[in-house]
């Protein structure tokens, strides 16, 4: 008791707060498990697949990582905020379909379609968020609903409008070359060919990390995911924060969707189903808690990188692609266990 002396100015021991030692701070980071996992996967495929260590392979791996990573980053933020989104996979396809079909049907400049698609995708994100804060139903149920609705709309509207399951080619339309440059081009840096999605991905990681760690909104995201009622009691606008997170997911789905469209010119309306789980898996491997309140954008990006390495590494090792899901599942379990173990150790050492 005497150590905790009565409040008095004399008890000042250390005038400034100190940071914990470096190893302890590292152990406290949510991305640690993912980084260790990424190194292990990298070493593994470097040993078993000779082609894995070439620059061109690296570029392919980065591209595969970025297609998942662009979505995994905002999905991680959403999970830190305590919610799920199961509609993300098909939302990407919806976004691509809307811009393609709008431009084609209206014979407008493709940029008009791209703009309409942005508004429509954000509206769907807003719908998810608004329904969630209005009804207080679990986000799992609400977004499962929008997942099925969107999946049906994607197929139904595409068949209704184009009479096939895919959209018409828009490559000869006005604005296509410039839009392709923005969403589906590549540039060469040294020996590495870098797809532009990788740049989008890095930009999103930087933006999300900035928001999470250096803005008030980030503080609120952690708070609404960690303890919603406590956050509300100190004046955090819980509703606005959650809707904002869904809008962020929608924005990334739009970027992803435009890449899909301008990379392949035609969009298959049945695509995207199942991808929502890949995004969640990347976020969880990256240290996000399913219960919310903990995680990082960088971790989710590393999770996506693990996905890319595994996906392509299996091809370079010349195993059947059938083994990919097996590896992904094993990675998910191992990374989650590692995260759990590290966190437990970190808490005990305090």
């Amino acid at each position: 008791m005497s150590a905790e002396a009565p409040p008095a100015e004399e008890t000042i021991a250390s005038p400034r707060p100190v940071r914990g030692s470096l190893p302890r701070r590292l152990v406290g980071r949510p991305e640690l498990g993912a980084v260790v996992g990424a190194v292990a996967v990298f070493v593994f495929f470097s040993v078993v697949a000779d082609a894995f260590l070439q620059w061109s392979s690296f570029s392919t791996v980065l591209y595969a990582s970025s297609t998942i990573g662009i979505m995994a980053v905002p999905v991680a933020l959403l999970m830190i905020g305590g919610e799920f989104d199961l509609s993300t996979g098909v939302l990407v396809t919806s976004s691509a379909l809307i811009s393609s079909m709008f431009s084609y049907q209206m014979t407008a400049n493709v940029w008009v379609g791209v703009g309409v698609s942005l508004l429509a995708t954000l509206a769907i994100g807003f719908f998810n968020g608004y329904l969630l804060v209005r009804t207080n139903l679990p986000s799992f149920i609400i977004t499962l609903g929008t997942f099925l609705i969107l999946q049906g709309c994607n197929l139904g509207f595409t068949k209704l409008i184009s009479d096939t399951v895919s959209t018409k080619s828009i490559s000869d339309m006005e604005g296509f070359p410039s839009a392709r440059k923005v969403f589906a081009s590549h540039l060469t840096i040294g020996d590495v060919e870098v797809q532009i999605t990788v740049l989008w991905w890095f930009a999103l990681i930087a933006l999300a990390t900035w928001i999470l760690l250096r803005t008030r909104a980030g503080n609120w995201i952690f708070a609404v995911g960690g303890a919603k009622e406590a956050a509300r009691a100190v004046g955090v606008p819980v509703e606005r924060t959650k809707i904002g997170l869904y809008l962020g997911v929608a924005l990334a789905a739009w970027i992803s969707g435009q890449h899909l469209l301008f990379n392949y010119d035609v969009v298959q309306s049945g695509e995207g189903v199942g991808n929502e789980l890949l995004y969640i898996i990347a976020a969880v491997i990256g240290g996000c808690l399913l219960t919310g309140g903990y995680g990082s954008a960088v971790g989710a990006a590393v999770g996506a990188f693990i996905f890319g390495m595994t996906n392509k590494g299996i091809v370079y090792a010349q195993w059947g692609a059938d083994w990919f899901k097996f590896f992904l599942g094993a990675m998910l379990l191992l990374a989650t266990l590692l995260n759990w173990w590290v966190r437990k150790r970190a808490e005990e050492s305090k």
Binding site: P17, N219, W220, F222, A223, G226, A227, A230, A231, V234, G235, V236, L289, G293, Y294
Partner: peptide, 15 residues
């Protein structure tokens, strides 16, 4: 308080 957040983030949460 929000248990998983650092002490200082909790202290200034909302302000």
């Amino acid at each position: 308080v929000v248990p998983l957040m650092p002490v200082w983030r909790n202290f200034f949460l909302g302000s």
